[in-house]
Computed example of a mutant assay.
Amino acid sequence: MNADLTLAPVQNRPLKLAVLISGGGTTLTNFLEKRAAGELNIEVPLVIASRPDCGGIAKAEAAGLRCEVIRRRDFENTQDFSAAIFNLCREAEVDLVTLAGFLSLIHIPDDFQYRVMNIHPALIPAFCGHGFYGHKVHEAVVARGVKVSGCTVHFADNEYDHGPIIGQSTVPVKGTDTPDEVAANVFQAECELYPHVIRLFAAGKIKIVDRRAVIEE
């Protein structure tokens, strides 16, 4: 990775997103709702699901989006699995790959460095890494008794929940909150943070300095 890099803006056209899903597609739905409201200037030429029973597949198809299923089990290793994903992303000429509840580890090729984002439902580096995903994160938050949780958008690299942090949003956690209540509050924060970071990317306002993401206002 380059130590110092300013990401170029996407000008005079919508940002082309690939959206990778493993579940219900709620983040995809949020992107499409923001687009419909005029709050996110995007196209989604490609959705990739990690399994054929993802609820998000029906949502993608209902929106008229191309959706491909690529299962990890169909490949011998992570490299081949990742190559299949990024070959489709190249064919679709996407500007940015967004991981939207995508649970499989991928290896990012050089031409997609700093062009793959992930959102994690906690404040990295807390409650993250292998095994911390979905509801398990919120269960751990409640069990630990922390007073603040939230979400993190970061550039993905070849480790779980790693790579430069771009943005974070916090939510309070009450002592009486259940994991479901924490999850609902965190998701509301995600619905605002992820589109905000995508807009920053499109505007060329993210700079990488010493492997840290710096926002240029």
Rank of each mutant, 00 (worst) to 15 (best):
L96K: 03
H135D: 05
Q11K: 15
A202Y: 00
I124V: 14
I85F: 12
V141H: 04
P52N: 12
T98M: 11
E39Q: 13
K34C: 13
K147F: 03
E93F: 03
L105E: 02
I85G: 10
R51M: 10
D95V: 13
G163I: 06
T6A: 15
F75Y: 14
L7M: 09
L32F: 12
N30D: 14
T26C: 02
L28I: 14
I198V: 12
L20V: 09
I42D: 01
C89V: 09
L17P: 08
I124Y: 00
G131A: 08
A84N: 03
L200E: 08
T29S: 15
F187L: 15
P109L: 07
N41Q: 07
Q11A: 14
R51E: 08
T98W: 01
T170K: 14
A3Y: 14
S50E: 08
A202P: 00
A62E: 15
A189I: 04
L99M: 07
T78S: 08
A8H: 08
H138Q: 13
C191I: 05
S169T: 10
R144Y: 11
I206L: 06
V116L: 05
L28V: 13
D177I: 01
C89E: 09
L193M: 02
G55M: 02
V69K: 07
T178Y: 04
E91Y: 12
A140Q: 09
A122P: 09
R73L: 12
A143W: 01
T78D: 06
G55L: 00
E33A: 13
G101W: 00
A202T: 04
E159L: 13
Y114G: 03
A122M: 09
N87D: 15
R199C: 00
S50A: 10
P125G: 06
G145Y: 05
T6G: 11
R144C: 12
E93M: 08
Q113K: 12
S104Y: 03
K147Y: 01
N30R: 11
I215K: 07
L200P: 03
V214T: 13
D74N: 11
G38V: 07
G38L: 05
I124D: 01
F187Y: 15
Y114K: 04
E39H: 07
P45Q: 10
A213T: 09
V148Y: 13
K59R: 15
K174Q: 12
V182Y: 02
V171N: 03
E159I: 07
G145H: 04
E61C: 12
V171Q: 03
A3G: 14
L96S: 03
L193N: 01
D180Y: 01
F187K: 15
I21S: 06
Y114R: 06
A84C: 07
F81T: 04
V186E: 07
D157N: 15
P45K: 07
L65V: 11
R90C: 10
D110H: 13
N41D: 14
R90G: 10
V197R: 01
L15S: 09
I42W: 02
V182D: 02
H154Y: 07
V173E: 01
A143H: 02
G150F: 08
D80I: 10
N77Y: 06
A18C: 15
K207I: 12
R71G: 02
P179F: 02
A203G: 00
G101I: 00
G150H: 09
